[in-house]
């Protein structure tokens, strides 16, 4: 167990290092950081001085080492566009994104799992067919169109819910939460649904496919031959075996919700890191791009670790070595 976790940890560090390298190359070679910091009419000498001061004349590995050391401390430099430290920018916008991602992850997980199980157990029913067709429509609808559609119906026509922003927020420590005010909750509903829909259909289709596969296995047939009830077979045997492959992919899907929120945040003008990133891409604000990349990679690595540990808990074949031979 320990060896397994340590191996995964080592892999995670490698992944982070690779992403850091990409982020650094981005930082160092895309655009000219000096030109971005100094105005158009600065003297050549100023350029040279700044280059020296920023350590841009040092060898590659020294610069990379410094970048890593800074990154570990959460230090990514100053945004070209907003002239603020990147870490501050990201931290101030993080609560909005995390609350949104969390809400939609729960929606996606709950509905995705239950609909997936339902369509697998009753594959020939009319309802299952309808759900499958609707899910295909869901996959074909771009997220931004879903958002626009929801805004049009619920905000413009029916005027039930707000169309943009987070509503009122309450500050707890350094965390601005929208979950404690009624406007905050109401503002969360539409973006959370928008963001969850795509993952929901993916999880549902995955659960269905895996469960259908499991239901074809010999041990399910043998369980039937032993006279077990349908309930015991479907929810005791089939569902647990379905979970093994589903955990991995679902975990990663939920992780990508955070990165996926870029589009949703743009449509709903949600003040999160996603909209910060998209604004940065448009003006090539490299420090923010690099930091965002590192942030997403970190989320991915953490989720991956959690998934591995879950995997371990579910599958005895990993936990206990084979006693054969």
């Amino acid at each position: 167990m320990l060896a397994f976790i340590l191996r995964r940890l080592a892999q995670s560090i490698v992944v982070m290092a690779v992403v850091a390298l990409i982020a650094f190359m981005l930082f160092r070679y895309v655009g000219d950081p000096v030109a971005s910091l100094l105005g158009q009419d600065s003297r050549l000498q100023d350029f040279e001085e700044l280059r020296e001061r920023l350590g841009l004349n040092d060898p590659f590995y020294v610069q990379f080492g410094r970048f890593i050391a800074n990154a570990v401390q959460g230090e990514f430099g100053i945004s070209y566009r907003l002239q603020q430290p990147v870490s501050e920018l990201i931290l101030s916008r993080l609560p909005a994104t995390i609350e949104l991602a969390f809400a939609s992850a729960i929606i996606a997980l709950v509905f995705g799992l239950s609909l997936g199980v339902f369509t697998a157990l009753k594959p020939r029913s009319f309802a299952a067919g309808l759900i499958m067709t609707l899910s295909l429509v869901g996959v074909s609808l771009p997220t931004f169109l879903i958002g626009i559609g929801l805004i049009y119906v619920f905000a413009v026509e029916l005027q039930w819910l707000p169309s943009f922003g987070r509503g009122d927020v309450v500050r707890i420590g350094s965390w601005d939460t929208g979950l404690l005010t009624s406007t905050g909750i109401r503002s969360l509903i539409l973006p959370a649904i928008t963001l969850s829909l795509f993952q929901l259909t993916l999880i549902m289709r995955l659960v269905r496919a895996e469960m259908l596969e499991v239901l074809r296995q010999d041990y399910i047939r043998f369980a039937r031959a032993r006279g077990l009830s349908n309930r015991a077979i479907n929810f005791g045997h089939a569902l647990k075996n379905t979970m093994v492959p589903v955990i991995t992919i679902t975990g990663l899907q939920l992780g990508s919700v955070i990165a996926f929120s870029i589009v949703t945040e743009t449509v709903f003008q949600w003040p999160g890191v996603g909209s910060l990133f998209i604004n940065s891409v448009q003006v090539v604000d490299v420090p923010v791009m690099a930091a965002y990349l590192m942030f997403i990679a970190f989320v991915f690595v953490v989720i991956n670790l959690i998934v591995d540990i879950l995997y371990f808990a579910v599958d005895p074949r990993l936990r206990i070595g084979s006693g054969r031979r």
């Binding site: 296995q217 010999d218 041990y219 043998f222 369980a223 045997h237 647990k240 075996n241 093994v244 579910v314 599958d315 005895p316 074949r317």
Partner: peptide, 10 residues
Amino acid sequence: DPLTSLNPLY
């Protein structure tokens, strides 16, 4: 096939 007749998770 005895290898596939038993549920591996129980």
